[in-house]
Design a protein around this nucleic acid. Structure first.
Lengths: 185, 185, 185, 185
DNA sequence: TATGAATGAGTCTTCATTCAT
DNA sequence: CATGAATGAAGACTCATTCAT
């Protein structure tokens, strides 16, 4: 593993633990065992480390969410999408932190935010198709998308809270609640 | 308005704009036009400013969410709670920022977080009562609460996004989706 | 003497010895025995230290050069102006360094350069009057001014060169050469 | 053009624009498109680049100033020397910058400065001969030399000042002033 | 109650240079 | 000849905090 990867990996871990702003370069340097100048040899900026990390993480995002979606069954599709997203966030805490901070943090340039946004397109298509098939009531698709997304996020937050033990049945309840909200009747 | 209030107000605005970590004391001092030492005369340290601010905001929280809740009609209660929370966040962006950042920020001591948590108690009671009345299916109350809360947050985020125009009909759709998810059948 | 003055004085000495770019803030801090933050309490910038210093020095400039100029005798006026400028530079090495570096260095903002330029106005007036009185040949006044100035600078440079002993007779020769160049015949 | 020449040329341009101290190796590397290590392959260190550059430039100096000097006419010799020097500086801004910065820059080792100094020998000889021929008054030759040099420099500075349009007649006036100063009567 | 001078640890970044390939 | 990874000291500047007035 080359120094650049080490820096990225270390930064990933630190940000996951502490958030973006709380993670200083000196910390990254100390933790990664890499020299000061080496970091700047590979990255123009502190921002560039984060940007690169962000790109690495969001690259997966698009494919991961739509993985293993079955052909016809809208309900099954829903469950799997939901769980894909849930597991993605659970396994990629930084991606989760990022996705939570995106809206507000000026650290992430707008261009990147827009790029992330495009991954939602497939989720949007799913809901539009569901409306056409009369499975879902014809709600505004942005609202549906955002609520779907928010539901997953809510449960991930419970999962993250160390004091609470999130069980599979809770997850299934959440999926059920989420699903019922969108239905036609 | 005395100096202390000026400092609090300025901090409120800065944090709303930039987040907690991005807001430095020097910025607060510069922006508020108050002297260096004056801030430390009124507050022990930076954390105390934030803590005090947080207490001010969460104090409202409890009462605001349960304001104007009608007696019997569970559905009407739901709508009003939902809108109370929505408007509270829209009108108190800092409260919103806080509630979003609370989970992760080490800046907010756990004791305070717990205190905020207790305001949820009434929401929890509402859901438990709904289950008893057989209006809601008997889901885990923490899950219900968190999803309810998350739904409001999702819509506030849309509202905050400058590029999107959130209409009343969108809000009503969101409430409907939110409500349907919890129902018994 | 307060810390601010100490910083200014120290910077003055260091720049005189080493030039602007060679003088680092850490050096100023070390040499002046003042804390890092203290410098930044009094000055916004490294640049601001230099600017302030520059203003202090050039303030004298205007009055010094025209000091003790006798009424009518154009030749005597010339000698005294010449010597005033010479001694000013010899006694204010930083002013000399500055006046030499002004033309090129981007460290000095244009606004300051312009301000310094206005002090030349009196020298310009002197030459114009000399032309009117038919003492001087009617050369372009900017050329006269610049050559006059340059002559003084040349001799100051000899004076500064540690290996050479500049005698009064050399100075007088220089004044004579300088004077003769401008004469009518 | 080989890499070494590219580095020298780039450095030349950067120093001309910004001065010696303001020009960093990283800038040279970035600007010249040459690799980090390549620079150190050709030069021992940063100082060596500057030294080599300096030698290239001053090599010309000696021959250029004395080019096309006619045999007997002392006045014509003066004009041509003056203009040779003027045009040399105008066409070699770096040589000009160097000659201005030499006195103070610790970047240029004394040995080199001395070497440059020897080119002045011919100018010195010219003035000494002029004194012997009773054309010039018997001033100290170092003073004469320095004033002659300084006069050219003053006019080059006017020429460099973007805000002023230097005309041929100004140059001729300057030569005349310069010449008259040294004359016997 | 209010001020602002003073502090020094810590921030990000640039620098000239070395070394293995 | 040429490359670029790696280094750590040094650069300017920001930060939260203390203290005397």
């Amino acid at each position: 593993m080359n120094k650049k990867s080490i820096v990225l990996q270390t930064t990933l871990e630190l940000i996951t633990k502490q958030g973006i702003r709380a993670t200083s370069l000196s910390q990254i340097i100390k933790e990664s065992g890499v020299a000061n100048g080496t970091v700047y040899h590979h990255f123009k900026n502190k921002e560039e480390i984060i940007t690169e990390l962000y790109l690495m993480l969001t690259q997966d995002f698009g494919t991961v969410v739509m993985r293993n979606i079955p052909e016809d069954d809208v309900k099954k599709q829903f469950s799997i999408m939901w769980l894909n997203l849930f597991h993605y966030f659970v396994n990629n805490p930084l991606a989760f932190v990022f996705s939570e901070q995106i809206a507000r943090s000026p650290e992430i340039p707008q261009s990147l935010k827009d790029k992330a946004r495009q991954y939602y397109a497939e989720i949007e298509n799913y809901f539009k198709a569901g409306i056409r098939k009369k499975t879902f009531k014809s709600y505004n698709s942005m609202v549906m998308e955002e609520l779907f997304f928010g539901n997953v996020v809510s449960i991930v937050k419970i999962h993250e809270n160390e004091k609470v033990k999130l069980l599979d049945k809770h997850i299934n309840q959440a999926i059920e609640i989420s699903w019922k909200g969108f239905l036609r009747d």
